[in-house]
């Protein structure tokens, strides 16, 4: 571990921690950036791990349900479900079999991925270094690929619900005439496209920014001497428990709200 470090060492340490474990799909090698044809193995593995954890746990509970008095595990899962269901019922105007499961998935999955931020920053990288993994970033939500991978689906669903609720003509009329009336239709279209395209971008960048900043601060905290680390590290970690839950909640909530807005007329 690092204790007192020089500026250049610190810079190297931070740089090292900000590199992904990448796989070059074209050359088949684990180093070298191939532009788009690169896979961030760390993000993908941790994201998959969180997904499997979520599906395994919730799937297991769902297949072992009791209608009578529920056990503690079932009870806690049901509490989460009720919480999500209430939010969806309150915020989403309309009926959909997709929205509630989607919201639940986002909430729990994003939460689990964020939770990786509470692991000590060097734990996974150092452990995996023993097996020859050069770089490893443990928080998938601090990788914009992951956050965009979710918000793009929200964008697709946004378009889908727009068409579903209003039809081609209804949507076309709405895009041409709202909010400034039919004579300013170029402005209306520009506004509408901007408004809708900003949604997935802001959704994913908000989560990415929060988690990236959080991770970065953990990395910086790791640079201070070990006997002071618990002060700043403790405070930031406790604060971060709030952040990771909040960010997961916000991602879910905004998804519900955006999709609800897509159904409503402007």
């Amino acid at each position: 571990m690092l204790s007192f470090v020089s500026i250049s060492d610190a810079s190297t340490y931070v740089q090292h921690h900000l590199n992904h474990w990448q796989w070059n799909v074209i050359t088949g090698q684990f180093n070298g950036d191939a532009g788009f044809w690169t896979a961030n193995l760390d993000s993908m593995i941790v994201s998959l791990f969180a997904a499997v954890l979520y599906m395994g746990f919730f799937g297991w509970v769902a297949s072992h349900i009791k209608t009578g008095v529920p056990g503690k595990v079932q009870n806690s899962v049901e509490m989460v479900l009720n919480f999500v269901q209430k939010l969806v019922v309150e915020s989403f105007h309309g009926k959909s079999k997709l929205i509630a499961p989607l919201a639940l998935t986002i909430f729990i999955w994003v939460f689990l991925m964020n939770l990786m931020d509470l692991l000590p920053v060097d734990f996974l990288p150092e452990t995996l270094a023993l097996f020859g993994v050069s770089h490893f970033r443990s928080v998938p939500t601090a990788d914009p690929n992951i956050t965009f991978g979710m918000s793009l689906w929200v964008f697709v669903l946004l378009i889908y619900y727009n068409f579903k609720a209003k039809g081609v003509f209804g949507l076309g009329r709405e895009m041409l005439t709202k909010p400034f009336g039919k004579w300013l239709f170029p402005l209306n279209i520009a506004f509408r496209l901007l408004e809708d395209c900003v949604k997935p971008v802001s959704l994913s960048l908000r989560l990415f920014g929060n988690m990236f900043a959080g991770e970065l601060i953990f990395i910086l905290i790791a640079l201070v001497p070990w006997y002071v680390q618990w002060t700043v590290g403790g405070v930031w970690a406790i604060f971060h428990i709030l952040i990771i839950t909040l960010q997961a909640f916000i991602f879910m909530m905004l998804t519900i709200v955006y999709l609800s807005m897509a159904q409503d007329t402007h």
Partner: peptide
């Protein structure tokens, strides 16, 4: 942005499908 995005898109679809199919309705 790289292939990770595609991977995440696929995973997301699978996880949401799984939730819709096996988690949400029975619970």
């Amino acid at each position: 942005i790289n292939l990770t995005l595609i991977g995440q898109l696929i995973t997301f679809a699978i996880v949401v499908w799984f939730t819709m199919r096996f988690v949400w309705p029975p619970l």
